[in-house]
Simulated assay, not measured.
Amino acid sequence: MQEWLDPSSKLGHIRYMRISTFLNVHLVSDSTGETLNAVLRAVAPLFEGVTPLEHSYYLVRSRRQLDRVLAEIEAFPGVVLFTIAAHELREVLVEHCKRLGIPALPLLDQVLTMWEHHLKMRAGEKTGSKQALDENYFRRIDALNYTMAHDDGQMVHEFNQADVVLVGVSRTSKTPTSIYLANRGIRTGNFPLVPKAPIPHALLELTKPLVVGLKVSPDRLIAIRRNRLLSLNADATSEYVDEDSVREEITDANRLFERQNWPVIDVTRRSIEETSAAILNLLAERSAR
């Protein structure tokens, strides 16, 4: 925890203001730690003024590896989140943390217990990475390969092989959203709408993939584009950021979405994860129909 002098104080004495609390968070996994990282990203923003100091230990599968982790936990006390399948290693970690008075939480235990009770069988001790090379893994790799090859309007003639195609004007997060979906095993292509540029018939005639239009407010888009130009030391007075031109560009895109009867997602205040979740919901609804 840090405290600093409040320079804005008008009182005749010194006042202090707390600005941040630091918390050591130890993430211990016998696999790649994806679950732990996802939980940390979800929880940390809920505590205003708290800065997590992340200590990550992945592929921990032997007592020797665990001993090094225990030494780090002792040197930097905080909280411990872990996903370890081997009962022996789990017990050592939990007992060590108990002696130190450090909270240690096995993230998957409640889920595993529920499954065991429902299925009337005990969970095994395979680590996540040992189970990774299955159909889902190869589907994700295939989706990533497809998505990278069909980014930014490349090979539109192959878009009918996609699961999802994203369409939108420049800087509507088409590429990062596509990559996020690909990591979920969704083959994703994306096409940028450029003013006065023709739209290929192959895009307009798609039948298999879910085509989604991404729209954004003019003010937000102009701000994003200006920041982009500044980072490139480019001309910040071009039509790319001209208010009238941008509004016309967005209007044309919205008209296209309406003509094609494509579902539309407003990404103005959405994160990549939220946009992707909305697209996954659209996919599920389409599949149910």
Score class of each variant (00 low, 15 high):
E158F: 04
R289S: 13
F76E: 07
D235G: 00
L23N: 01
R122M: 13
S56I: 10
L221T: 07
L144K: 00
R184P: 05
L214E: 15
P218S: 10
E88M: 01
F257I: 09
L46R: 14
V156Q: 07
H118I: 15
H55Q: 03
A132S: 15
L70T: 06
N227G: 15
L283P: 12
P45R: 15
P176C: 15
L166G: 02
V246G: 05
Y146L: 08
R247N: 08
T113K: 07
H87T: 06
R15Y: 04
M17Q: 09
A38N: 12
H96T: 09
L206Q: 02
L27W: 05
S231T: 12
K120Y: 01
V28N: 01
Q2G: 08
V212E: 11
L232A: 10
A197G: 04
V25W: 07
T35I: 11
S245T: 05
N261A: 15
A143W: 01
A42Y: 01
G78N: 07
H26G: 04
F159P: 08
V164F: 01
L166I: 05
N145Y: 09
S170R: 03
C97N: 08
E3D: 03
R140I: 02
Y137T: 02
F138Q: 04
N24Q: 06
L105V: 14
E48K: 12
V111G: 08
E91L: 09
T51G: 00
P198H: 13
H13Y: 13
L89C: 05
A104V: 10
R247Q: 11
L53A: 00
H150I: 07
F159V: 08
S238N: 01
A162K: 02
V39P: 08
G124W: 07
S231K: 13
E116P: 12
V167K: 02
L229Q: 09
V264E: 12
D242H: 03
L105A: 07
A253R: 01
M121W: 05
N183Q: 10
I186E: 06
A197N: 03
V211I: 05
R64L: 10
I141C: 06
P106H: 08
R228F: 09
M1C: 12
V267E: 15
S62T: 15
V43C: 00
V246W: 01
E54H: 00
A104C: 14
E285S: 13
A104D: 11
N24G: 00
